[in-house]
Simulated scan of single mutants.
Amino acid sequence: MRIWSLHPRHLDRQGLTACWREALLAQAVLAGRTRGYRHHPQLERFRACPDPLAAIGAYLGAVAAEAGGRGYSFDVGRIDRAAQPVPLLDVTDGQLAYEWGHLRAKLAVRSPERLAALAGAPEPHPLFRVVPGPVAAWEVRASPG
Rank of each mutant, 00 (worst) to 15 (best):
P132C: 08
L107I: 03
L127P: 14
L96Q: 03
T92F: 07
V135A: 08
A136N: 06
W138S: 10
Q95P: 05
A108Y: 05
D80Q: 13
V86W: 11
R110T: 01
V86F: 12
R70P: 04
G120Y: 01
G68S: 13
D80T: 14
A117S: 09
P144I: 10
P144Y: 09
E99L: 00
E139P: 09
R110N: 04
G120S: 04
Q95C: 08
W100A: 10
L96Y: 00
L127N: 14
W100D: 15
P112V: 14
A105W: 08
W138V: 10
S111W: 02
S143D: 13
S143V: 11
V109I: 15
V76L: 13
L115A: 10
E113D: 10
S111A: 15
K106A: 14
A64T: 10
S111M: 06
P134W: 05
V140M: 11
D93R: 02
F74T: 00
A117P: 00
P85G: 04
P85T: 10
A65G: 03
A108L: 08
V131S: 13
A136L: 05
F128E: 12
S111T: 13
G133V: 05
D93E: 05
R114M: 08
F128T: 11
A67P: 02
V135K: 06
Q84K: 14
P87Q: 11
R141F: 00
D93G: 01
E99P: 05
R104N: 09
G77L: 10
E66R: 03
W138M: 02
Q95V: 06
R141P: 00
P144W: 11
P126S: 09
A108N: 04
V131E: 13
A65M: 02
R114S: 09
G101A: 02
Q84E: 12
I79V: 13
E99I: 02
D80P: 05
W138P: 03
L88V: 14
D90K: 05
G133Y: 04
V130L: 04
P87M: 06
G94W: 14
A82M: 12
A117G: 03
R114W: 07
P144L: 11
G101Y: 01
D80K: 12
V130Q: 04
D93K: 00
G68K: 10
A65P: 03
V135I: 09
G68E: 14
S143I: 08
P85V: 07
V135W: 09
K106R: 14
A65Q: 08
Q95W: 08
L89V: 04
V86Q: 11
Y98E: 02
G120C: 04
A67W: 01
E139W: 13
W100T: 11
A121S: 07
P87R: 13
Q95Y: 09
P126N: 07
V140K: 11
P132R: 07
P122T: 00
F74Y: 02
G71C: 11
S73V: 10
D93Q: 01
P122R: 00
A142D: 14
E66K: 01
